[in-house]
Design a protein around this nucleic acid. Structure first.
Length: 600
DNA sequence: ATGGCTCCTG
DNA sequence: CAGGAGCCAT
């Protein structure tokens, strides 16, 4: 009986849509290793301090402390814990005997080949020589900014005073922070109805942006036409100047590592530690081969028309999603990681940054081009909060949730998570090296959420990658392994779902795995989306659907081939899937990213 | 010895 | 999701 006919209805539960049963040929999953991590790429954020001897010590101390803490914690939690130490053969044996009865099916082998992580303190080859210069430029830039702001202030002041006599105190507290940051922003911030109370609690960046917002919306109101015009002009000037400056700074930064400039956009991201962004040609090619299905969601097809035009993540802040169906991607696609929408000319990035500085949210929506995606878009119009940098309501959500966070931003602890570019030179002279005494931040729900979203792009993130994408987290062993554990849990859920639906498809009579495609309206997708993207405030990238489809198919094949009798039957699947990680959009590197997104 | 992964359990 | 255990690779 032809499954294709009878199956659609039941099938669409999980997957849907028939694929052209195209050649079943062996699609070799490219046994080659992917070389996921290049140990050398230097990482922005915390890790870039690797070169710093101080940092190294700090790290040691931190690690030790973390271990001690862990031990102490363990003692508190379970008095027996000690007996279970790794070295305790006795306890082990006991456990083993008990375990034996169950005839466990360990013994599964198959190295997950979690790429060589060589974060080594040595890593980070130079390429920071431009540091001081850059810093200087930034400093100048900031001063410039302040200067201009003063002008604007002066223009606005008279009215301000009249309008809000008491408003100026609002900043007293945070002001020092701001000044310290060299960005002394808006001492004139006022109209503080919503902010006044909480302002003191805001982290610098939030507050900064908050005041930006306020100013933007309020300033003009108080000004006479002439002043307003002046203001406009000033603003433009400022915009231009800053943009230019940022641009040149970026240029410097980008051009610093010699020879790495070929892909501008990438190089911006090139600070990514993960060598995997530079997949060896065959891998990506293999990736392509893995999707011979001409099947991908028909709905998704239209998007393929929007392929790799280097989606300037800045311009429209387009999407952290993968506009391409892999099969469209030519081999050359390894050049710029087609997968990633991050390639953007530096000037665009610069403008984006500028946008932040000035509090302009980007106008674009993330989810523009996909919205016509008929049924799959269950809520095309309700795709709201997807402006990563949007100047929207800000809330000290981070602070309030952090376990160890200080109630007020410490002058030294405050980071500037606004711009990846700024974070790039963290250790700087400013105050960084001695930030150490402060406890690590711990992971908060925001981090978890972010991690879940990242799962759409990467199922097997290396710890280096995590470090790069959670710049606001002080990584130590515990934190790292906790986060890794998260992903392990994510995977677990993911694979369980896959297996479940694969079996279901089998029992539904499906015979051709290629018919299994995960679409946005399929039940499987909903299950996954529910798990990783509760609230559906993030648009799941297409690449994830493709990987999911593939995973489903692999499970289908394995199960229907009866391989599941082998205890380690899943391993090969894991191996395949582990090679399908995509690059994660740059925005994720912003430590404030998800907070804004989910803030609502 | 350590880090990472899976599986299992709560 | 965290803990714990076992396996594996480095």
């Amino acid at each position: 009986m032809d499954p294709n006919s009878g199956l659609l209805p039941p099938l669409s539960r999980a997957c849907s849509h028939l694929a052209e049963p195209c050649m079943e040929g062996e699609r070799s999953p490219a046994p080659r290793e992917k070389g996921r991590d290049s140990p050398f790429a230097w990482s922005p954020g915390p890790s870039s301090t690797f070169a710093d001897p101080d940092w190294f010590w700090d790290e040691n101390i931190q690690a030790k402390r973390a271990r001690v803490e862990t031990i102490v914690q363990g003692m508190c939690l379970s008095p027996h814990a000690l007996a279970l130490g790794p070295g305790n053969a006795g306890a082990r044996d006991g456990a083993y005997c008990a375990e034996k009865a169950r005839e466990r099916k360990r013994k599964q082998s198959l190295p997950m080949q979690q790429g060589p992580l060589k974060p080594g303190p040595v890593g980070d080859h130079g390429s920071r020589k431009g540091g001081p210069r850059v810093r200087e430029q930034l400093h100048q830039l900031k001063q410039q900014l302040r200067h201009l702001q003063k002008h604007i202030l002066q223009a606005a002041e008279p009215r301000d005073a009249a309008q809000d006599p008491g408003g100026s105190e609002t900043d007293q507290g945070p002001l020092r922070v701001k000044q310290r940051k060299g960005c002394g922003s808006r001492p004139w911030a006022m109209d503080s109805d919503h902010y006044q109370g909480s302002r003191a609690d805001l982290s610098w960046e939030e507050e900064h942006r908050a005041s930006e917002v306020e100013c933007q919306s309020d300033e003009p109101r108080f000004l006479p036409c002439g002043a307003r015009a002046l203001l406009e002009i000033l603003r433009k000037e400022l915009t231009g100047a800053v943009a230019q400056a940022v641009d040149s700074v970026l240029q410097k930064v980008l051009t610093d590592p010699p020879g790495h400039l070929t892909q501008l956009g990438r190089s911006f991201q090139g600070l990514v530690p993960e060598g995997r962004s530079e997949p060896s040609p065959p891998e990506r090619g293999a990736c392509k081969d893995l999707f011979p299905l001409a099947t991908l969601p028909r709905r998704a097809q239209p998007q393929t028309g929007v392929p790799l035009r280097n989606l300037s993540l800045a311009k429209s802040l387009d999407p952290p999603r993968h506009p391409v169906s892999l099969r469209m991607i030519p081999r050359s696609y390894q050049g710029p990681p087609a997968n990633c929408p991050l390639t953007a000319p530096s000037h665009i990035q610069g403008n984006q940054i500028l946008g932040q500085l000035l509090g302009h949210g980007p106008s674009g929506h993330w989810s523009s081009s996909l919205s016509h995606d008929s049924s799959s878009q269950s809520h095309p119009s309700s795709e709201p909060a997807l402006r990563p940098w949007g100047a929207v309501k800000l809330r000290p959500s981070v602070l309030s949730q952090q376990q160890y966070a200080l109630p007020f931003t410490s002058p030294r602890l405050e980071r500037l998570p606004l711009l990846p570019s700024v974070k790039m030179e963290p250790g700087g002279q400013q105050a960084a090296p001695d930030v150490l005494p402060f406890p690590s931040e711990g992971l908060n729900p925001g981090h978890l959420k972010k991690a879940k979203l990242m799962f759409f792009f990467t199922r097997y993130p290396s710890s280096n990658l995590l470090k790069a994408y959670f710049p606001d987290v002080q990584f130590n062993r515990c934190i790292t392994s906790q986060m890794i554990k998260w992903f392990s849990n994510f995977r677990e859920f993911y694979y369980i779902q896959m297996e479940k639906f694969a079996r279901q498809a089998i029992s539904d009579g499906v015979t051709n795995p290629k018919m299994l495609v995960v679409l946005r309206d399929s039940e499987l997708f909903r299950a996954l989306n529910m798990h990783y993207n509760k609230g559906n405030d993030f648009e799941v990238p297409d690449c994830f659907l493709e990987v999911a489809s593939l995973t489903l198919q692999e499970f289908f094949r394995a199960v229907s081939a009866g391989k599941d009798s082998d205890p380690s039957w899943k391993k090969p699947i894991y191996k395949i899937i582990s090679k399908l990680d995509s690059d994660i959009p740059e925005i994720f590197k912003s430590s404030s990213y998800p907070q804004e997104l989910f803030r609502n």
